[in-house]
Amino acid sequence: VCGFFFSILYLCLVSGLEITSTGPASIQKASGESAKLDCQFTLASEDTGPLDIEWSLRAPDNQREDTVLLYSGDRAYEDYYPPMKGRVHFNSPDPKNGDASISLTGLTSSDSGTYQCKVKKAPGIRSKKILLTVMVKPSRPRCYSEGTTQEGKDIVMRCVSKEGTNPLQYVWEKTSGNKLLPPTATLDTAAGTIIVKNASASASGSYRCTASNLVGTDECVLQLNVTPPPNTAGIVAGSIIAVLLFLLIIAIILFCFCRARHRKKYEKEICNEIREDVPPPKSRVSTARSFTVGSQRSSLGSMSPSNLHEYVKPQYDKIPSTEEYDRPPSHAPLPPPTASRMAGPNLSRMGGIPVMIPAQNRDGSIV
């Protein structure tokens, strides 16, 4: 065992393979950019074995290590790692000449990690590690104010970038007026907030917020307008007047609706009501003679035996005068009242003719 270890130590001491790169051991790049990882080496006459170059990536969490690309048997294997296919390649077309450097294009945050360049040419083995950090530029921040912007109130202005690798820093500045922040303003560069306590009208103006990290910056603009406090008494009075007007309109609408409904109901009742006080239509009187004869017959039929001797037969051969002819039937003399109604058989024996007389109301309407 001791002889084995001594032999390995001897080979390392006599080997002439060396990594000669003097580039930085840590690189920070923005996403989308390109990065160059240096790995130059020199060989000696003692290094007689085949040349192998291997680049590997260890993730920041140190959970796994993946081989990115290889050079073996005088051939480069650049599409060895699928996530970086087409984005990683050797800088030199022939790495065996002493340049094993690589270039990465289109960097993403998943490309961050520790890259190791390992050069092997028996009996020599050398390696170098480079830490690559791919950072995301801050996206365009959003500037806005929270809450009310009235005088005498505390005003909060915020600036937020949805994307960007920490640490992010936010800086507020005023770009109008005297270009000085209000004396009562408190700035938090990490949270991106600025609080103006007991704001006054002089705090109004244009403000700019700049979000930045190690790989980029972006900014947004906010226009702040501090308004005077509202007239509370006027608002209350206006609200009361508006409520009263609303109630008045509702009352008018209800009144009109009830009135229209009552009128409709009244008209419907009038249409369905039976009018008893309307007089019957007047019949046409052909001649005064026919009226006189008919009335006399009716009177004769309603007479009793007791008053039959008082009946005097009128003269039918007498021509009525013009006054009698024009006199309406309502002015014809009524027959004298009878004490009792004469029966039909008795009236027939006495030479009378029974006549059916329709019943009448007090106003003359036939029932």
Rank of each mutant, 00 (worst) to 15 (best):
F5I: 10
I27R: 01
I27C: 01
Q28F: 07
S34C: 02
F41G: 07
A44G: 15
E46L: 06
T48M: 08
T48R: 11
W55L: 05
R58L: 08
R64V: 04
E65A: 02
Y71D: 07
E78I: 12
E78P: 10
D79I: 02
Y81D: 01
K85P: 00
R87N: 10
D99I: 10
S101V: 01
L104Q: 02
L107D: 12
S109Y: 02
S110Q: 13
G113L: 06
V119K: 03
G124H: 04
I125P: 05
K129P: 05
L131K: 14
V134Q: 01
M135L: 15
P138T: 07
R140C: 05
Y144Q: 10
T149W: 09
E151C: 06
I155L: 04
I155Y: 05
V160L: 15
S161Y: 05
T165A: 02
P167I: 00
Y170V: 03
V171T: 15
T175D: 09
S176W: 05
G177K: 08
K179N: 10
P183W: 04
T184L: 12
T186F: 04
D188P: 09
A190P: 08
G192D: 04
G192F: 11
K197N: 14
N198Y: 04
G205W: 12
R208I: 13
L214K: 12
G216K: 08
L224H: 07
P228H: 06
P229A: 15
N231L: 09
S239T: 14
I240R: 07
I241Y: 02
I241H: 01
L244I: 14
I250W: 05
C256K: 10
C256Y: 09
R259L: 13
A260Y: 09
R261A: 09
K265S: 11
K268G: 08
E269T: 04
I270T: 05
C271R: 13
P279R: 05
P279Y: 06
P279C: 03
S290C: 01
V293W: 05
Q296V: 13
S299A: 15
S299H: 08
L300K: 06
S302F: 05
M303D: 01
S306Q: 12
N307C: 07
V312F: 04
Q315G: 10
S321F: 03
E323R: 12
E324Y: 07
P328E: 06
P329N: 02
H331M: 10
L334R: 12
L334G: 00
P336F: 06
P336M: 06
P336D: 10
A339P: 00
G344D: 14
G344A: 15
P345C: 13
P345A: 15
N346G: 00
R349A: 09
M350A: 13
M350Q: 11
G351W: 08
P354N: 09
P354E: 08
V355I: 15
M356R: 10
